[in-house]
Design a protein around this nucleic acid. Structure first.
Length: 226
DNA sequence: GCATTAACCACAG
DNA sequence: CTGTGGTTAATGC
């Protein structure tokens, strides 16, 4: 890959913007841009963690296999790094990432990335901030999912998609009911029933997978009151 | 007891 | 894949 590409890339992360011109050249020489289609696995649980992944474009789901099946951990929207915890801490990936839209990612050599962290404090600091934010979010969601009943859990992820991912009250739910159920740790039937209840109560409108949040206040209160 | 919540199963479209 | 009905188990008045 041409080394000028990283330097002039307009999808640069906060951290990568802090790299020097020389470091960006190195990055460009050690990074490859790959396109994935919806449904493609970007990296898989149980395989060797060889590259840091930077999601330039698109939406992905993180998921891992548990004792009874697959658990969706979270959705990630570009731009962001994928798999920092599983690439640094472990030799083997502890979770998978799958594209849920077409995506564009850069695979970055793990060694080069480590060099940047060691030699560029500002860069490392930005990476730490991203890790911290994600950890807090995960802890919060874990707490909420443990303590809320199913309608509250469903309301929470619908609001999360609306506010954080799509930034709109109208969007296509990027997961089917089985995936939603694995996300909020319930059964597919419960997801189906509760979505329908939300529709009956006029809280949302569903047209296929296209959802319109009509009564955000009500959804918020269901989310808060569990 | 009775009601609520939600999982599991089976079946249909 | 999605929706529904029946059944069952746990929990809380």
């Amino acid at each position: 890959m041409n080394e000028s590409e990283c330097r002039f890339c307009c999808f640069k992360s906060q951290a990568v913007q802090l790299l020097s011109v020389k470091e960006l050249e190195t990055l460009g020489q050690n990074c490859a841009k790959i396109n994935f289609q919806k449904g493609d696995v970007i990296f898989r649980e149980g395989t060797l963690a060889t590259n840091i992944v930077y999601l330039r474009n698109g939406l992905v789901k993180l998921h891992m296999t548990g004792p009874t099946g697959i658990k969706i951990i979270r959705l990630m929207k570009a731009p962001c790094f994928l798999g920092l915890p599983t690439k640094f801490g472990e030799k083997i990936n502890h979770y998978s990432t799958t594209s849920i839209t077409d995506t564009e990612v850069c695979f970055i050599s793990l060694d080069i990335f480590k060099d940047f962290i060691v030699s560029n404090g500002h860069f490392a600091y930005e990476i730490i901030i991203e890790l911290c934010k994600n950890e807090i979010k995960d802890h919060k969601r874990c707490t909420n999912m443990t303590q809320k009943q199913v309608p509250g859990r469903l309301a929470e992820i619908l609001l999360c998609m609306s506010e954080e991912i799509f930034e709109s009250n109208v969007f296509e739910i990027p997961l089917n009911n089985t995936e939603l159920s694995s996300f909020i740790s319930t059964s597919r039937e419960s997801v189906s029933r509760i979505l329908n209840e939300f529709v009956k109560e006029g809280i949302i409108n569903l047209n296929g997978r296209k959802i319109t949040i009509q009564k955000k206040d009500t959804l918020l209160s269901i989310c808060q009151n569990g």
